[in-house]
């Protein structure tokens, strides 16, 4: 079922689809970040993926492009899942918002901005959500120290 959707998606947006991966029965489609809103709108309106379960960022430090924004979609009618990913480079660390497609993306994108520093263009309210408003840095980046800034790494219990 999701293969059929992917095939149709490829047909519709041949330039957008970069890669399709199957793993443990789950389909992951990587698309160009410029086309993410168009692809999501298509998937929502034409393919029935009306529910955005989750949206998050991933930091592949050392690989270009560095970030991935991952959209986990769900089709309530057919009970199918589909994952869409878009790569975001560190130099132009921004991607268009999908909060116009699914309102639920609003907070997810805020969290992604907060944790990874990926900007979402045209987002209605792009503020930090989990960290304090004046926080410096983006904690879930791989080069962000676990113990926080300006602190010695945890050495284990001394006793």
């Amino acid at each position: 079922m999701s293969q059929a959707v992917v095939a149709k998606l490829k047909q519709e947006y041949p330039a957008a689809v970069v890669d399709v991966v199957e793993h443990r029965g789950e389909t992951t489609v990587t698309v160009q970040k410029e086309d993410i809103v168009a692809v999501c709108t298509y998937l929502k309106n034409e393919a029935g993926y009306n529910f955005l379960c989750d949206l998050c960022g991933v930091d592949y430090l050392g690989i270009e492009p560095r970030f991935m924004v991952v959209y986990n979609l769900y089709n309530i009618a057919t009970k199918e899942r589909l994952r869409v990913k878009a790569a975001v480079a560190e130099q132009s660390c921004c991607i268009d918002t999908v909060s116009g497609v699914w309102a639920t993306a609003n907070w997810h994108e805020r969290e992604c901005w907060d944790m990874f520093g990926i900007r979402f263009n045209n987002h209605p309210d792009l503020r930090r959500i989990l960290m304090p408003a004046d926080w410096v840095g983006h904690p879930l980046r791989k080069d962000y120290p676990l113990q926080g800034p300006d602190r010695q790494p945890y050495q284990g219990r001394l006793s």
Binding site: H23, E26, C53, D54, C56, V58, R81, R83
Partner: peptide, 20 residues
Amino acid sequence: PGEIYQGIEAPKGELGYYMI
């Protein structure tokens, strides 16, 4: 290597784990 998403019906709604 790979990535999966597992959602379950937690008492409060869909609890999902996306793991890479």
